[in-house]
Design a protein around this nucleic acid. Sequence first.
RNA 1: GCCGGGGUGGCCGAGCGGUCUAAGGCGGCGGGCUGCAGACCCGUUAUUUCCCGGGUUCGAAUCCCGGCCCCGGCUCCA
Length: 475
Amino acid sequence: MSRRIEKFVPILERDVRGYVCGPTPYDSMHVGHARTYSFFDTFVKFLRYIGYNVTLVINFTDIDDKIINRAREEFGSEAYIRWREIPERYIREFFEICEKLNIGRADHYPKVTEHIDDMIASIRTLISRGYAYVAPDGSVYFEIEKVPEYGKLSGQDISKLMAGARVEPEPGKKNPLDFALWKSWKPGEPWWSTPWCPGRPGWHLECVVMASKYLGVPFDFHGGGLDLVFPHHENELAIGYALYGSYELARYWIHVGLVTIHGEKMSKSLKNIIPVHEVLKRYDGEVLRLYYSMTHYRKPLDFSYEGLSDAEQLLRTLYAACDYLRELYREARDEAGPEDPRVVEDVRKVEESFLLALADDMDTPRAVSELISLARMVTSKLIYMPEKISKDTVSHALHVLISLGNILGVLTKTTIDETLFNIIELTIEVRQRLRRQRNFELADYIREELSRQGVIVTDTRVRTYWTLDRFRQST
RNA sequence: GCCGGGGUGGCCGAGCGGUCUAAGGCGGCGGGCUGCAGACCCGUUAUUUCCCGGGUUCGAAUCCCGGCCCCGGCUCCA
């Protein structure tokens, strides 16, 4: 609320409650939406990693102008009865994409249509306290001038907003900036009955109602895309003030930077929207996750497929380190070796730096570089000294690598089927014998064929290591 | 017009008063390892420099002032 970065201190000692403005499910999720949810997933996983209990709520605004319009486009005159198919479809897609991006489940996914009664009750309160009024057509508007601090979050000045407002003055509004809590019914639209008029809920109110219902007020953090700062979050705060007497609602407001394409914002009119499912045709969900992590969340992200390829390359390196460690494990000593203390210490340092980077305003790019340094440590040092370190140390390093990666939503595919693993090992062993016999023709043939199957073989002076290319299909 | 956010190497992208002769990645270059190869390893790749001009400071990419440029919000938007 200070419009600065602040130290994050939960209201309750070990419990953190957060709310993220979810999608209005009227169209496919695009790479901008996914960035936001990916970020909050990493944020929540980080908090949990360092010991907090987190309760996360993500809502669905499943009734809205955009949904009605979409339904009309698709169903024509049947829109009135079939409109619900739209949110259903895109909510399903939302969950499918979350799964592919390793975005963990929130604790609650409230829908507006399931909280109409709660919203009506809140509107009643707002009217009785004088913060809202009923327009001639029955619509209910929130009167922003009743909230002295209106504009604080977004740094807006009401008088200036009014001067520059491009809002078409709606007939029943006292002030063009007043916003609808309840919209009166128009022909062909879905409606719910209220004391004022049949109609449907306006935007903004639902988040306050649902957040307070599932989290209580104030809760710890409230997030969303940067474009929600004004008017959405400003209006939520105004409602929160009217309802709870404090212009706070949430302790911390976290806004994720927008995604641009060639420097420009994605928009329908520019036809440059990139849906996530489009990206997922070419790249694994983890690649997208890593790509997001490579830019700080508050910065704009200029989306490019080249960047994704970079990220994919990096992911391969990380997976290679995991695979090498798994092989290394088989050769490592049972009891502690001479290099163990140093390796353990190095791993500890990386873990510490990684967590410090995240603790510093979620600096995921720095965290990624720490992860890389851990992988490099494996590929440059560890694989050359299996006889000097213990199995415990190796498995610890692997465990750290994977769990840190998991915070960023990557390295979830590290296990390899045991039979497959053994067959590969066997093939490699055969190739080794051929090499010793200097039968390079056949050895190279095996290497090539393995590569065709996605098994990348690397000969080092100590032994031969291999890694599974998990992203083979994408190029 | 008002309100935000940015401008760092060939590209992406950290750093936000001293450890910056600026992390990390990609790309380039050189080398190593190897029978060869490599999606392997090592080194190198911003050195009157961090958009420009002033200022504060013992010291600035980092703070202040003034410009320039880009993007976004003020109407639906993650």
